[in-house]
Design a protein around this nucleic acid. Sequence first.
DNA 1: CCAGATATGTAGTGTTCACTACAGATGTGG
DNA 2: CCACATCTGTAGTGAACACTACATATCTGG
Lengths: 201, 201
Amino acid sequence: MGMGRPREFDAETALDQAMEVFWRHGYEGATIAQLTEAMGINPPSLYACFGNKEGLLKAALDRYTKLRNVWMDEVVAAPTARDVAERMLMGIADKQTDPANPPGCLLVQGGIACGTGSESVPFELAARRAENEDQLRDRFVRAKAEGDLKPTSDPAALARYVSAVSVGMGVMASSGSDREALQQVASVAVQAVEAQSADRT
Amino acid sequence: MGMGRPREFDAETALDQAMEVFWRHGYEGATIAQLTEAMGINPPSLYACFGNKEGLLKAALDRYTKLRNVWMDEVVAAPTARDVAERMLMGIADKQTDPANPPGCLLVQGGIACGTGSESVPFELAARRAENEDQLRDRFVRAKAEGDLKPTSDPAALARYVSAVSVGMGVMASSGSDREALQQVASVAVQAVEAQSADRT
DNA sequence: CCAGATATGTAGTGTTCACTACAGATGTGG
DNA sequence: CCACATCTGTAGTGAACACTACATATCTGG
């Protein structure tokens, strides 16, 4: 029994192209025709490789979060909670206005509200965002234990807050805000984390 | 020349129903069939009254922002910049988790990313959000002039910040966060505005 | 009561959508 | 070289979409 004809395209390269289409148009706004054209393949190849449109989205999300997690590891490596927040939000201001990518964040642009039959998509995106929030929360728990954050601070609430600001910045970026505007938001937002930081003596 | 047969439905009541459908499913996710059923009318009545799907959305947005502006007037009537931010964000935590409405905010849920042919929808929503931001900015400009905000503060950046947090909270609400979680975010967020407030002597 | 004007309900229109049947191409194991 | 397995391109499939033609109903002005 033979192995069959080998695939002629690289799955990860194709996923990068699909990611960009979902990023720009959202899950429902992206059509199979746009996706296949961007990926440089025909529909049967797409379906053989990824199952269906939703499977393709999940594969694209896997790739997106994988790359993003590398960066998140750098973020939480910052020495203090305040620096974690600053590194995260300033980094997001940069990344979400990087002309190499569509504006905003795939985990937001992908789809906040969806029609009947795609109800699971917003939850899928929310689950991925929650992963980042958990990572932040763990980091802030540590910061509190280290005395970096005040004993009265709530690490989970802080993580939720930073996550919420990130999402808000993503929406702003996708609707035309420039890098400077996002940096201003990040700069103000960091001050709330500062307010929860212990005084440096 | 006669006036013609009068319309048998109330436009504002119908708009309220349409608003809810757009709110829950987004512009692209909402179908004409869902809209007409919720509005209790047939397609020809919808098109005669609102032109097309996008016209219906704009009419729904007009109604939404009209109601919202009444509330925003109350928000900016708070005595200090800090209280404005608190009233706004805490109010949003309440409103976006009010079971009487779909979760989140129509100006976010309506559509962040759209497919070809609906590119103007996200901009339309962004323009409405910008109105609220302008109102906040004007209020913060006044707060700075009154010495309520520090001389070094940036009212426009603060307004952008509060607006961004609002949007982030909307996304969280639509993906299942409860009222308490949003209130925690609001509570942390207010502290950034507090940090820009002059010390009370 | 009639002419003109607008609204309504039924029943479609063409288009676009996600998805696939099928035939031919290209690989492996024997 | 042959049986088999998998991929690829062409050309569709039925379903759902936004939108509308048309006949009928209900109003106003004269």
